[in-house]
């Protein structure tokens, strides 16, 4: 199928729940893991698709993701020992945030992508740090930028933004490009940070900073409407 045929149909209406699957064709999965997964976790695998020509995607039930990942990592026929990537996608418009696992099996040379849709009111999923140590920072980053909580993560704190960042989770679609505060307020807050904080033994790991978030009517919020997310 020519991918531009899809383009000719134009962007799907934003409320269309099936739009994420529209690009998928109905080709047979090229990766034997997909059918093995379906056979073993028939109730937890919600569907599968093939995108971008030859990439296998499995849509999994977030409640059982730990089990599935553990099996994919440990089972001798699968051995997905390399967690290539762990990230999330916000489609905006109140739709669920998807956590995406990109796996690679070094012995079998197979790639598999697993997507888990998390509704906005329950952004929590089991941590994969027990399976791949490398998931540690990737999960912290998803928490930082999307606000998805990973149950069982040993040290779930912000990683890129300051610990006491008060404006929210930047990669959400409802977050304006320039942030929620005015530039003057952002500069003031930045200079009032203490570069020496989290520098005392007990504070490195487990101190949870007090986040001062602005109320909707706060004058420090930027007056103008910065970004149009549908733009």
């Amino acid at each position: 199928m020519n991918p531009f045929d899809l383009v000719a149909q134009g962007p799907a209406p934003s409320g269309d729940a099936t739009r994420a699957e529209r690009g998928a064709n109905e080709a047979e999965p090229g990766n034997p893991t997909v059918s093995a997964l379906r056979a073993r976790f028939s109730d937890a695998v919600l569907g599968n698709s093939v995108t971008a020509g030859d990439q296998d995607v499995v849509h999994a039930d977030p409640a059982r993701i730990g089990e599935i990942l553990r099996w994919l990592h440990d089972s001798p026929a699968e051995q997905y020992d390399h967690l290539a990537d762990l990230t999330a996608v916000d489609y905006g418009g109140g739709r669920p945030i998807e956590v995406v696992y990109q796996l690679w099996s070094i012995p079998h040379r197979r790639a598999l992508r697993i997507r888990c849709a998390l509704p906005l009111h329950a952004l929590e999923i089991e941590s994969a740090t027990g399976i791949w140590t490398g998931a540690d920072w990737l999960e912290r980053e998803v928490f930082d930028l999307f606000g998805v909580r990973f149950a069982g993560h040993p040290n779930l704190r912000r990683i890129l933004m300051p610990d006491d960042y008060g404006e929210g989770h930047p990669l959400r679609k409802d977050f304006p490009l320039r942030g929620r505060f005015s530039r003057a307020e952002q500069t003031r807050r930045a200079l009032n940070q203490d570069p020496e904080s989290y520098y005392v033994p007990g504070e490195i790991g487990d101190r949870v900073p007090q986040v001062v978030a602005a109320e909707p009517g706060d004058p420090s919020l930027a007056e103008e409407d910065h970004g149009d997310e549908d733009d």
Binding site: P162, R189, L191, P195
Partner: peptide, 10 residues
């Protein structure tokens, strides 16, 4: 970035 601003100032 803003996170580096106090370091630069210092």
């Amino acid at each position: 970035p803003y996170k580096l601003a106090p370091v630069l100032r210092r």
